[in-house]
Simulated assay, not measured.
Amino acid sequence: MHPPHLDLRLDGFRATDEQTEEAFRDAIGIDHADLIPLAEHHTPEGTSYHLLHHAAATWGTPGEPQLIALHLWRDLREKTFGFTHAPLPLVAMAQSWLVHRGCPREKIRLAPDTGTAAADETTRALEDRLTYEGNHFALLDSYTDDDPDHAATVVILRSLDEHSPSPFRVLHETVDTASRTHTLREGGFTTHAEALRWCGDALAGKATPPPPFRSTVRPGPQPIGAPPGVGHRSAGRGR
Rank of each mutant, 00 (worst) to 15 (best):
R239G: 11
A193M: 14
E78P: 00
T43E: 15
K79H: 14
E173H: 02
G115R: 03
C103G: 11
Q222C: 12
Y132H: 14
S48E: 15
A111H: 00
R218Y: 01
D201A: 10
Y132I: 02
V155Q: 01
H42F: 11
R14V: 15
G236C: 08
F189L: 15
P221L: 00
L110D: 02
V155T: 06
D149G: 11
A94F: 13
G12S: 07
F24N: 05
H53I: 00
R169H: 14
P212F: 04
R105A: 10
I68Y: 01
K206S: 12
H53E: 08
T190W: 10
P4S: 11
E162G: 13
H85M: 13
P167R: 08
D17R: 05
R101V: 03
D161Q: 06
Y132Q: 13
A202T: 09
V230M: 13
D128C: 09
D145M: 07
A56K: 14
H150E: 12
R214K: 13
G115W: 01
H71T: 02
L38M: 14
V217G: 09
A226E: 10
R9L: 04
R197N: 15
A92P: 05
A56W: 05
L196K: 12
R101N: 05
D120T: 05
K206W: 01
H42D: 10
G82L: 02
L88R: 09
A193L: 09
D201W: 06
A27K: 07
L67A: 09
D176G: 11
R25Q: 15
P227Q: 12
R109N: 12
A15V: 09
R74A: 03
R129Y: 08
A111R: 01
W198G: 08
R124D: 07
R109M: 08
A94I: 09
P165V: 04
M1W: 06
V230H: 10
T177M: 13
G231L: 10
L8K: 06
R169L: 15
R197F: 10
L38H: 07
R158Q: 15
L90A: 04
T174W: 03
R158G: 15
R105T: 13
G134I: 05
G134Q: 08
A152I: 05
H100N: 12
L196A: 13
L51D: 03
Q19M: 07
L67F: 15
